[in-house]
Computed example of a mutant assay.
Amino acid sequence: MLTIDAATVRRLYPMARAIEDMRSAFTLFSSGRVRQPQRTITPGDAEGEVLATMPAHVPLGAGNGPGAFGLKVIAVQPGNIAKGLDPHVGVVLLLDPGTCEPRAMLDATVITEIRTAAASAVATGVLARPDAEVIAVLGTGAQARSHIEAVSLVRPPREIRVWGRTAAHAQALAAEFADRLPVRAVPSVAEAVADADVVCTVTSSAEPVLDAAAVRPGTHINAVGAVFPGRRELTSDLVERARVLTDSRQSALSEAGDLLFPLREGRFGEEHVRGEIGEVLIGRCAGRTTKEEITVFESLGLAVQDVVAAWSVYDRAAAEGLGTRVRLTGTAHEGTGR
């Protein structure tokens, strides 16, 4: 088995490649070619501490090869933030398509960071107005950084505004991009989104940070941070006003707090989720239908995204001789000392 650490994953997985991989993952999923149950959530002792288990069986080789099993196991540990650690930690396991022996194990933190932003970039490409050039990012963590990079590849920005609850964090993030992209920190959500064309909400907030009154017609929103039923980043008024698409209709209607709160309030029915990004890509569903409508991509994250990304990294690592080989399987007497 090949083990691939976080630094190697980052080195081998440029954002442009990840965007193409997520386009493939969305298409495979919405075409019904992926076998993937709902993710399983196991709570821990601490507030917000959970373990998510996300398996899938995915066709390989641009969807034309044999299928293979993959599994992401990732924990959310909010206490890591105070320690200067990423709150999302875990691994992606890939099994050999023929024997089901472990083929590779990869760091899941970096894969999740990159593929999540790449998925938003694919959604932005099909839902944002073609002339979009002002981007707002609400949040200052790893996803904020990766979304700045990813969305800029599909909608070259004239300006990118970053807001965070801690002003120093927003200023530090803007400084990271000073020599590459026009990023500046702003003191309020209102200033960030005032005339923005694309808004990415990538916060850890349990309460809404973005309201309908702040969003102008024609805006596209990537709603990324609220991936549990009891948390949301968008108000009910905003979601009701918007054209909503997602990565998985089933996941969104069972897990996305942004949708579940207004559904319980009777604001709309399940049909308010108009379709999946993969359905837009294969022509089964319309994306943006007017220049003035507000569009929302409700992102939950899918196992197929992790498995497709992990195979992409594994193929490059194997070709370049990178990673560490570990033998887990063998004959029954091996390792007994006899």
Results as ranks from 00 to 15, higher is better:
R284Y: 07
E298P: 07
R267I: 01
R216D: 00
T289Q: 13
E279V: 05
E276S: 08
N222W: 02
F297I: 10
N222S: 15
L300N: 15
A256P: 09
S251P: 07
E298H: 07
V239C: 07
A303R: 03
R216F: 00
S248H: 06
R243C: 14
F228P: 03
F228Q: 15
D247N: 10
V280A: 10
E255G: 12
V307D: 06
R216K: 15
G269K: 14
R267H: 06
V307I: 15
V308E: 01
E298R: 10
R216Y: 01
G287W: 04
R216M: 05
R216G: 02
A286P: 06
D258F: 13
T295F: 00
L260D: 07
R264E: 14
E276I: 12
S299H: 11
A256M: 12
G230R: 12
R243G: 07
P262D: 01
R284A: 15
S299M: 08
C285G: 07
V308H: 00
K291C: 10
E255H: 14
E240K: 15
T235N: 03
I294Y: 06
V296H: 05
K291V: 13
P262F: 00
T295E: 06
A303T: 00
E276G: 08
R249P: 03
D237T: 11
T246R: 08
E293K: 12
V304M: 07
R243N: 08
I294L: 09
G278A: 10
V244F: 01
V215I: 13
G225W: 13
G275C: 01
G218T: 04
G269F: 02
L302W: 05
V273L: 14
S236V: 10
D237I: 09
C285E: 11
G266V: 10
T235A: 00
L263A: 07
L253A: 02
I277W: 00
L253N: 05
G278W: 02
V296E: 07
E293F: 09
G218K: 06
S254I: 10
G218R: 08
G230H: 14
L260C: 09
R232E: 00
A286I: 06
I282D: 14
R231V: 09
P217S: 04
V227F: 13
V227E: 07
A303I: 12
F268V: 03
P217F: 01
S299V: 03
P262Y: 03
T290P: 03
E279Q: 15
S248R: 13
S251K: 07
T235H: 00
R232I: 05
C285Q: 14
F228S: 12
G225F: 09
G287Y: 00
G278F: 04
G218I: 04
L245R: 13
V224A: 09
T246A: 15
R249Q: 14
G275N: 02
F297A: 15
V280G: 10
G283Y: 04
G257E: 02
E276M: 11
G301H: 03
P262W: 02
I277N: 05
E298N: 13
E298Y: 05
E270C: 03
P229G: 08
V239L: 05
V215R: 07
D247E: 13
R274L: 14
